[in-house]
Simulated scan of single mutants.
Amino acid sequence: MSQTLDTSASAEDITKPRDSLDRRLHGVLHRMPALSPLVVLVIACVVFAVANPRFIRPENLSILLQQAAVVGSLAVGQTLVILTAGIDLSVGAIMVLATLVMGKLAFGGMPDVVAFLIGFALAVAAAFLNGLLVTRIKLPPFIVTLGTLSVFTALALIYAQGQTITLNPGTFLTWSGTVIPIGRFGLTVGVLMMLLLYIGFAYALRQTAWGRHLYATGDDPEAARLAGVRTSRVLLSAYVVAGAVIGIAAWILVGRINGADPNAGLNANLESITAVVIGGTSLFGGRGVVVGSLIGALIVQVFDNGLALIGVNPNYQVLAVGVLVIVAVAADQWIRSVKS
């Protein structure tokens, strides 16, 4: 008895992608980009807790969260820009300049609220300048923000004149540094402000038209334009809103150090990018969740804190973070390259 071969069925079976483990893993990571950094964070916490029990003491965890508050806040603004396939190398410099303006004006006798509003407006204006150069003159974001990084850093140093401003605790500007004791655990207002930023922008990115347009512009600007999205306006809004977030981060930094210091936040530019990349947001735009940036900021602080507690040379701490960034970018490339 001869059997008839179903040619069409055989061809379909041959060409149908195999539901292999790597394809399933790819699908999960594509749908939940914050999953892999969350796993890394949990594993790192377990390892450091076993290596040195001091790591999980409430006092140490309090310090860890307070250290993450500034970079974690900056990472919110950085996430908005990177989701549009851009990058902002000047966020830390803008923040430091804003803190100096707030601090010096308040120290000179201006009401704290007015000093804050002027510094906040300066941060928004600086980010608006970045956005204009990117959207109107069509310069690459990397080149624009690399240039403004030097400009804002120089302005901060010139304005500070080598001075460090110390403010009295308990004022409006230093309110963000107020500690809320929870047993032996100390939670600052600045940490709560950072968490509120993440909650607010997680909602805005997923539940509003502006958030959907931001993702669409970063994923495929031409397709978004043809669909009716005003991509230039969306890009400009990403920088402006990021500037507002930087202004809040400046307030958190003033509260954390009880003043303003031109040398504070020297590495905040790269640390914010590191947090966003480790958190699963793609440098190519259009993919990522803002909560991943919070996880990324915590990972950086956990590694710095944990490695210091077990006595690792600080140079190896920097090395560990660098390896994490490379692995995160490589993982993003793999997720994008595998055909779904």
Results as ranks from 00 to 15, higher is better:
Gln3Tyr: 08
Gln3His: 08
Leu5Ala: 04
Asp6Phe: 04
Thr7Ala: 07
Thr7Val: 13
Ser8Gln: 12
Ser10Leu: 15
Ala11Gln: 14
Glu12Val: 12
Asp13Met: 15
Lys16Asn: 10
Lys16Ser: 13
Pro17Gly: 10
Pro17Arg: 09
Arg18Pro: 03
Asp19Asn: 08
Ser20Met: 09
Leu21Pro: 00
Asp22Pro: 01
Arg23Trp: 04
His26Gly: 13
Gly27Ala: 13
Val28Gly: 00
Val28His: 06
Met32Lys: 10
Ile43Gln: 02
Val46Gln: 08
Val47Tyr: 06
Phe48Trp: 01
Phe48Ala: 01
Val50Met: 13
Ile63Leu: 15
Leu65Gln: 12
Ala69Arg: 09
Val70Ser: 04
Val76Tyr: 03
Gly77Ser: 04
Gln78Ala: 05
Leu80His: 01
Ile82Glu: 04
Gly86Lys: 08
Ile87Val: 04
Leu89Ile: 06
Gly92Ala: 07
Gly92Arg: 06
Gly92Ser: 08
Val96Asp: 11
Leu97Ile: 03
Met102Cys: 03
Gly103Asp: 05
Leu105His: 02
Phe107Cys: 06
Gly108His: 09
Gly108Trp: 11
Val113Leu: 15
Val113Gly: 07
Gly119Cys: 05
Gly119Ala: 03
Ala123Asp: 02
Ala126Val: 04
Ala126Met: 15
Asn130Thr: 01
Asn130Met: 09
Asn130Arg: 01
Gly131Thr: 07
Arg136Tyr: 08
Ile137Pro: 00
Lys138Phe: 07
Leu139Cys: 02
Pro141Thr: 02
Phe142Arg: 07
Ile143Phe: 06
Gly147Met: 11
Thr148Ala: 00
Thr148Val: 03
Ala154Ser: 15
Ala160Arg: 08
Gly162Ser: 10
Thr164Phe: 06
Leu167Trp: 08
Asn168Tyr: 05
Pro169Glu: 09
Gly170His: 05
Phe172Cys: 07
Leu173Phe: 05
Thr174Gly: 10
Thr174Asn: 07
Gly177Asp: 15
Gly177Pro: 14
Leu187His: 10
Met193Leu: 15
Met194Arg: 04
Tyr198Asn: 02
Ile199Thr: 00
Phe201Asp: 03
Tyr203Cys: 10
Ala204Leu: 15
Ala209Cys: 02
Gly211Trp: 08
Arg212Val: 12
Arg212Lys: 14
His213Phe: 09
Ala216His: 11
Asp220Leu: 14
Asp220Thr: 05
Ala224Trp: 09
Ala224Gly: 05
Arg225Thr: 10
Val229Asp: 10
Arg230Asp: 11
Ser232Arg: 14
Leu236Thr: 06
Leu236Ile: 09
Leu236Gly: 05
Ser237Pro: 01
Ala238Pro: 03
Val240Tyr: 00
Val241Ala: 05
Gly243Arg: 04
Asn258Pro: 01
Asn258Trp: 11
Ala260Arg: 11
Pro262Val: 11
Leu266Ser: 02
Glu271Cys: 06
Ser272Arg: 04
Thr274Met: 15
Thr274Phe: 12
Ile278Trp: 08
Gly280Tyr: 14
Ser282Phe: 07
Leu283Glu: 05
Gly286Ile: 12
Val291Glu: 11
Val291Ala: 07
Ser293Thr: 06
Leu294Gln: 01
Leu294Ser: 04
Leu294Asn: 04
Ile295Gln: 01
Val300Ile: 14
Val300Ala: 10
Val300Gly: 03
Val302Leu: 12
Ile310Trp: 10
Gly311Tyr: 06
Asn313Arg: 12
Leu319Met: 13
Val323Leu: 14
Val325Glu: 06
Val327Lys: 00
Gln333Arg: 11
Ile335Lys: 12
Ile335His: 03
Ser337Pro: 02
Ser337His: 07
Ser340Met: 08
